[in-house]
Design a protein around this nucleic acid. Structure first.
Lengths: 161, 161
DNA sequence: CCAAATTAGTTATCTAGGAAGATATTTCTT
DNA sequence: AAGAAATATCTTCCTAGATAACTAATTTGG
C-alpha cells in the first residue's frame, strides 16, 4: 500500500514509525539531562518532583488543590497522594485545608520547598539553554514548539473521552 | 537577565520552560492514543510491549539479544528480564541460546508473537496517520522529526557519559 | 596463556504509581 | 429540600521497573 510515490504527498508506514520514534528518542535522551544535578545536593531530581515544584512555585501563594496538581502532572489521585506524602515528609510541602470547599486540600510549598523550587528551576533553565536552545537555535525550538502545540491540542480533543 | 529584547535573539526563562513543556504535553497527550485498542482483544497495549514487539518484528529471524533489546527500549537489564518473562508466559516470546556467544540469550518472537506484532503495528500506523500526520501534515511532521533528530543526536553526545 | 576487567543474564529487594473502593463533601435534579 | 450524581482525598492491594549482588562466559593486557 505504500511505495514511495512523489515524496510530496505520501509517507511510508516505516517512515511514519521512524519519525514518531525520533520524537520519543529525543525526549528520552534529552529529558534526563535537564534534571541532572539540579537537586540541592547536586543530585538529579525526579521528573514528578520537578513538575510539582515548578507549578507550585509559580502559583499564587505557592499552592494548588491536590487534584488539580495531580491532573497537571499526569498522576492519578492515589498516586499523587503518595507523592505529596513524600514531599511533605521531606519538609518541602504542607497540606492546607480549603475553607470554601472542605473536600479540597491545598498542596502548599514550605519555605524550604520554595527555596528548592527556585534553585532547581534556575539550574534547569541553564540546562535547557545548553541542551535544547543551543542545539536547536531559537527557530528550531519555535518550530518544535509550534508542532508540539498542534499535536497536544488535537490529541486533547480526540483523547479527552 | 531576561527582558524580551528583540524577540529575535533572546528568549525568556518562562518561554523556554513553556516551550519544553509543550513537548512533554504533546507526547503525553498523543502517545496513549497511538496504542489505543491495538491489542488483539481490542485493549490498549503497553508502551514497552509495543516497543519490543516492533523491534523484533523488523529484525532478522525476528530476534535480538536480550541486552540489546533492553537498551533499545530503555530498560535496565533486570527490568527487561521480567518483561521478557511476561511476554514468554503469554506465549509471544521464546528465549533462544546463542551458539557463538554462550552468554547471550536471544529474545525471539513466536508465531503468535509475530502475529501480534504485525496486527499491533498495522493498527498503530493507522492511529499515527489519524492523530499525528492528520493534525500536523507532512511538512509539520517532517519539521518535528528534523528538530527531534537534532535534539536526540546532540543529547546522546552530551549524555552518553 | 592466565589473571583481570567486561559483558550477559538472572535474582532478590525496594520504590513509584495505577486501579478500585471507601468517605466526606458539594452540586445537580427534580 | 431530599435524593442522586459528581468531586476530592485517602487507603489497600497489585504490578512494573530500578538497583545491586551474583554467576557464567568472554575479552584483554601483560
Amino acid at each position: 500500500m505504500n511505495t514511495q510515490a512523489g515524496t510530496t504527498e505520501t509517507i511510508t508506514d516505516d517512515d511514519l514509525i521512524t519519525g514518531w520514534g525520533l520524537f520519543h528518542e529525543a525526549l528520552s535522551a534529552t529529558d534526563p539531562l535537564l534534571l541532572r544535578g539540579i537537586d540541592p545536593c547536586g543530585k538529579d531530581m525526579s521528573g514528578p518532583w520537578f513538575e510539582v515544584l515548578i507549578r507550585l512555585q509559580r502559583s499564587p501563594d505557592h499552592r494548588l488543590p491536590m487534584s488539580q496538581l495531580a491532573r497537571e502532572v499526569s498522576l492519578s489521585s492515589g498516586g499523587f497522594t503518595k507523592l505529596a506524602d513524600r514531599l511533605e515528609r521531606n519538609g518541602y510541602l504542607a497540606r492546607q485545608a480549603c475553607p470554601s470547599d472542605r473536600r479540597v486540600t491545598y498542596a502548599a510549598l514550605t519555605e524550604e520547598g520554595l527555596a528548592l523550587a527556585e534553585q532547581a528551576r534556575a539550574k534547569h533553565v541553564a540546562l535547557l539553554r545548553e541542551h535544547v536552545l543551543g542545539p536547536l537555535g531559537l527557530e528550531g525550538l519555535q518550530a518544535l514548539a509550534a508542532q508540539a502545540r498542534k499535536l497536544r491540542d488535537s490529541s486533547r480533543e480526540s483523547g479527552g473521552l
